[in-house]
Design a protein around this nucleic acid. Sequence first.
DNA 1: AAGCGGGTCAACCGCATACCC
DNA 2: CGGGTATGCGGTTGACCCGCT
Length: 353
Amino acid sequence: MGRAPCCDKANVKKGPWSPEEDATLKAYIEQNGTGGNWIALPQKIGLKRCGKSCRLRWLNYLRPNIKHGGFSEEEENIICSLYVSIGSRWSIIAGQLPGRTDNDIKNYWNTRLKKKLLGKQRKEEQAQAQAHAHAQAQARRAKQEMKRESYENFMVPGAMNQGPYWPVELPVAVPIVCAAQYPPPLEDQAALTNFLIKLGGRFSDNHQQPNLTTTTTTDFQYPIDNHIISSPQDQLYANSMSMLTSSTTTNSVGSTCTQLTNMVQGLENFPCEVELGYNNPQQQLNGLDGFYGMEMVNASTAGTTTTSSCESASWGDISSLVNVYPPLVSDYEGTPQPQDSAFGDLSYFRPIQ
DNA sequence: AAGCGGGTCAACCGCATACCC
DNA sequence: CGGGTATGCGGTTGACCCGCT
């Protein structure tokens, strides 16, 4: 037996909202709030809409102070940073961007940011591949130079040492080198996350570090009160959040790497006793892939990677340990409606006592 | 001018969780 | 405490727009 439908689908209008519907919903909510019951609301005001649909329309479009489009570079940086830290928790990310909705951020990420970053990733990989090929060519050149010199010892001196023996720029089969030495371009979240980690928070076009310290740190307020931390999960969350907080409040200029390293170090204290088994920070970062449920990306080291519990611990597994944490405090300055579930997150914003 | 394809974004769907009785 | 219902969330879909051919 399936779940009972939330509304009578036959008598419910779907699709785009008309201005009249918008006006009706907006006027009612602004005057009365939602009454704490979205399901009953459309019937109350004579809208042939599903309660869920009304809620979504209000949250994503009608509520005050909503911004649409035109994401600033700063906002992009925040989205990227948070995506690296917490994954696709759009509502939490939205909590850090006043006036932005989770839907907007999700759309922006999927349609633009992801592509933008993938493009950047390809460029960097190409540059890396070219640099690598160049280095190999130089090594070959040096090797042949040595051979030649040893050969010349048996030849007439000076007969072959005029001009270069091969062009400075050797034709380089970049794709082959790339295929052999680098993992293929990954089109998925795993690749992006790794790329973001590699960038270390350097997301903007001018390659400046996002200055979370000056722009957003004050917005990052984690309402953690040691007095109310009682359960292991609370403690867990407090650990992870304080790590995040410290990483943004120190002079790390919002370094994503720092955040992640701190997080990983903190994860070592998790009750599941995640054994990272890495010897250096870079390896720790690579190992973090496991937390995101992705495979080890560094194919070249795959053979030597020691099996650890970390590898089987997906991000979901880990996040399930910390998903009790409240969303980050928003500095949303809208006008909360009484009983308004649109501001349901405000329940998280209970004053710290 | 028409057709096509890609991009964008609003809206829907289904699942997980919270809440209430 | 358990079951039913409401809410919140993230993934996905589809309509619309715009540029290109």
